[in-house]
Design a protein around this nucleic acid. Structure first.
Lengths: 94, 94, 94, 94
DNA sequence: GCGCATTGATGGCTGC
DNA sequence: GCAGCCATCAATGCGC
């Protein structure tokens, strides 16, 4: 496995002996994920801010969260219903 | 205090009777949060994609996750260490 | 399921009608857990005492907590590192 | 106890320069707390075991938890009620 | 009273 | 395919 080490199975060899290309590739994956984790953390921080602002405006955060959660469930159910409908239509037409 | 209903205590009145302004404000909060939730979902979907790509490239996702987790702990520890330093400094300067 | 009511599925019957054996068994579980909860509460009370003592001795409790937290992270990291090593070894040996 | 650096304010001096006695004392506090944390972890592990056992016996863990929680609230309320009663009695008799 | 840290609960994921 | 595990998330309790 001379020049194909990066194309199929990085885990084939001993960890200490993976070549430079595979190493770079792995680092790239790690970097991409960590970048996304950072994004997520930022978004969550923003949400915290909004909740704090709502609270300072006088809203009950607990209830607000419940509202959001309920609406999320509704959306989810609606999507499932639509998916089911699609399925039925496909079965009828297909 | 007619036109200040939104400035201090939305929870004062009955939910069904809150004025239009407060209602708009509440809707705005909900919209902002749901927008952020959507962002977060997108980011998480991206992360899933990256993991899937890494997997199809031959990496062991479980190990990859552990690596990420370990690096996250490092970061966490660094932050905690800094926080501790801050506390020490605060204690010294009084 | 005559005499096997306690051996497999306590949830089969109505709660009000479960037999004496199952009832005793359930009570036993509840008692064991509540005993453990009591233990936990005692331990936590002891911890509170120690912190209070440290505080009255002049230590900054906040700093003390941070120190403990940092040491805990160290331990955690060591465990995660070991787990990662295990994973690596498992990947190598297949 | 004239030269008792440990008797009043360990946080007065620079952390790096606290004397050996204070250092030992601090280490003792940390050790005591970590010992208690360990105890707590053990107790919690035991609880997990009991829940697992209950589950494998056929009980619904979720419901079991709810039962425990409700009983805890009851106990708490009863204690508060008793405390209140004591207070009233003391007010009447005192 | 608020913010934070811990803890209990839920849902998704992986292994059998 | 489902159960067990883990990561995430809401919620309560605690200290400041």
């Amino acid at each position: 496995m001379a020049f194909t080490e990066t194309s199929s199975a990085p885990s084939d060899g001993n960890v200490d002996s993976i070549g430079g290309a595979a190493r770079e590739q792995l680092k790239a994956f790690v970097a991409r994920i960590e970048r996304l984790e950072e994004d997520k953390a930022n978004v969550m921080a923003d949400m915290k801010e909004v909740y704090a602002e709502a609270k300072s405006t006088g809203y009950d955060v607990k209830i607000l969260r419940k509202v959001i959660a309920l609406r999320k469930i509704d959306t989810h159910q609606r999507q499932e219903t639509e998916a089911l409908l699609e399925l039925y239509l496909g079965a009828v037409e297909g």
